[in-house]
Each structure stands twice: as structure tokens, then as C-alpha cells.
Design a protein around this nucleic acid. Structure first.
Lengths: 205, 205
DNA sequence: GTCTATATATCGATAGAC
DNA sequence: GTCTATCGATATATAGAC
């Protein structure tokens, strides 16, 4: 029966993690309560604490899953790729993430906004190494004359900011666009504009 | 003695408001404690509650002051202005705000990130009207052939995101740039890149 | 206006029966 | 594994002396 028990654990952990992402996104870590997360997951608070001993441990798990998704969005940035296609695909992937997982984006934004207390170590470690590898790809394109000289790090910062604002600050965008919820065409318009801004500043359009 | 009393009140309120901006920025509304704000302001917690009856009222006052500053940054966007100069000045003013008042930017970011519970009404009211007036200026420039057609609202969203990320997510930028604190040259580099992106996408460079 | 002490409420976490 | 009841810690807000 070991396997069946493990399956139940995985099932309940998944329900808790999904509920936690929502509540952490809506309220932030401090204001999020384990009882609210448990209620959304459909179980008593004590059960949540049976699967995740502390709120902090639960939060760390949520954050870990989000970071993995975040890294995946930059798959297109490879040395052999065409710069124009790669940058376009990256922008599209980042917007797609904002559209599909706004709550995940908000949890990450809240973490960084308040000083990255939990991801600071990873930020200085593998995430910084990851960014530098991606920047080296762009530097390579520049060195071989395939695109205009641009500071690659600031280019990433601006692409992150522009794409994530449609998830993190969706309320503001929705109000200003007179939408109850952002539509596909809103993401398309934003994506087209950012793409144009990036490509032209890189001498690719 | 009425005037002297009023002066003392204003002095203490200003100290509390400054401390509150810092604490709200670092921890968010929920995690901020009135005792931490009072300690930073150099007075017992009870005194803070004498000047601001509730934490919520104090937060609302902090937010009001920030919104006023935020609106002021777009002064350059006027019908009679030259589009290239106006957009360049606006980008510079927004970066200057991120550089000088990162805590104010963070308080605002946190408010929007969690659904704008306190500024939702103003967002739909005067802030939306303000944005639409600014967008009308840009539409005017486009109609008279002074710049290329661009969706002005998305242009604003991207400029806001790109400039504010250097305040709101400064920790991430600092780590990635190997800085203990962001330097003037970092803001200059970011500003130059965003300016180039905006001007080229608007057919102004 | 200022300060100490405290009432009241809420939340994270656990004990212990089932 | 699940659930009810509860402990202990912490926070907002105020009472009341000075």
C-alpha cells in the first residue's frame, strides 16, 4: 500500500500548492493565512500543516516551482538561433507566461519587491549564472555583427519589466483599458509594441 | 499658542509619514507594524496612534502623497511640446523618480500588485482621466504626422514598467549587475536604452 | 501631547482523539 | 491521514496617569 499512500500525499500537496500560489499572489506572504490556503484547498488547517509543517516551507516550495517556470521561458536564446527570431520568441514566451500564470508572476514579484529574503541566495547563484549565459549569447550575436550593440542585461531587465507588468499590475492595466479582464488582443497589442521596440533598438527591424 | 501646536503636529506627522513610507516599502502593508514605524520615527507606538488613529489611515495618507508625485512626472507630455523631447523628458523624469524615491515606488507597486484595494476608486477616476488626457496628446502628435502610429496606452504601460522596475525590483537588478547599490551610470545606461527603444518605435530616431 | 500598561483579536502551529 | 480544540505569540488600538 506504500504507493497508494504516496499518491494521496502527492495529490493533497498539489492541491495545497495550487491554493497557496493563489493566496500568496493575492495577499503576499505576510497577509496570507494558512487557514485561507487550507479553505481554498478544501481541507482543515491542521491538514495543511500535516503536509507542510510551516507556512514558510510551503512558500519556499511555491517559489521553487515558479523559478523553474521562469527560467524555461528563455529557451529560445541560443547561440545558433537567429537573433530576430530568438528575441521575438522570448518576448512571446514571457507574455504567454504572464497571460497563463499571472498568480505565479505575482508571487515572484512580491518576493523581489520586499528584498528577495528567500531567493536572494539563488539570485546570486544559479539565476545570475543563468542570466550571464544568456547575455553571453547576445554578446556573441553583437560581436559577429548580427545585431546592433546593446547592453544585454538592461535589455533583459526591460523585457522582464514590460512583460511581467501585464501580470503583476494587471488590475491597473485592466482599469486603464476598460476591461474586466485582459483579453488576448490586449496581450497581442502589448507584445507587438514591445517586439517592435526591442527589434528596432537592436537594429533588427 | 494655536500656531505652535499646529507646527508640532505637522512636524510629527511628517516624521511618521517618512518612517511609514520606508516600512511599508520594505514589508508591505500587512507585515508593517505600527511599532516598527513608531520606532523608526523615534517615538512610542501610542504617539503614532495619537496622530493617525489607524494603520490604514496612515497608509492612505502615504499613498496619497505618492500618487501626487507620480502624476507630476508626466508634465512634459503637452500638445505644444516636441514629441521627441517630451518623451525623452518623461523617461528621464520617471527614472529620476525611481532613483530618488524607490521606497515610494515600492509602496505603490505593492498596492497595485495586491489588487489596488485602496486606490481602485482613484484609479478608475482621476488617474484614468489623467492617462487619457496624456494619451490624447500622443494621438494628436500621431494625427499631425509628428510621430509614427503607436498604441499610446501600451506605450505608457511599458514605460512605467521599465522605469519602475529599477526601483521596485532594485534588489534583483543590483544582484545581476554586481552592485551593492545601483549607481548613476546604471540609471543612465537603462535610461539610454529605453529612450532608444521608445524613440525608434515611434519613428523619432 | 506623551508614555506605560493592557484589552482584544488573530494567526501559526500542535496536541490528541479518531 | 483527518479533524476539533487550543496554546502561545504577536499585533492593533486604547485607557488612563502624567
Amino acid at each position: 500500500m506504500k504507493r497508494a499512500i504516496g499518491r494521496k500525499r502527492r495529490h493533497n500537496e498539489a492541491k495545497i500548492l495550487a491554493a497557496a500560489e493563489t493566496v500568496f499572489a493575492e495577499r503576499g506572504f505576510a497577509a496570507a493565512t494558512t487557514s485561507a490556503i487550507a479553505r481554498l484547498a478544501g481541507m482543515p488547517k491542521a491538514n495543511l500543516h500535516y503536509y507542510f509543517r510551516t507556512k514558510q516551507a510551503l512558500y519556499d516550495r511555491v517559489l521553487d516551482e515558479i523559478l523553474a517556470l521562469w527560467i524555461d521561458t528563455a529557451e529560445a536564446i541560443r547561440p545558433a538561433a537567429d537573433p530576430k527570431t530568438a528575441l521575438s520568441d522570448y518576448i512571446a514566451a514571457k507574455f504567454e507566461f504572464s497571460r497563463r500564470r499571472p498568480q505565479a508572476s505575482k508571487v515572484f514579484a512580491n518576493e523581489i519587491l520586499h528584498g528577495a529574503p528567500r531567493v536572494h541566495r539563488r539570485l546570486r547563484g544559479d539565476l545570475k549564472a543563468w542570466l550571464e549565459a544568456k547575455c553571453a549569447v547576445i554578446e556573441g550575436w553583437i560581436a559577429s555583427g548580427r545585431m546592433a550593440p546593446v547592453d544585454p542585461k538592461h535589455l533583459f531587465f526591460i523585457i522582464w519589466a514590460a512583460t511581467q507588468t501585464y501580470a503583476d499590475f494587471d488590475v491597473q492595466v485592466e482599469v486603464m483599458l476598460d476591461r474586466r479582464r485582459l483579453k488576448s488582443r490586449d496581450f497581442d497589442a502589448a507584445s507587438a509594441l514591445l517586439r517592435r521596440m526591442v527589434l528596432r533598438s537592436c537594429g533588427l527591424a
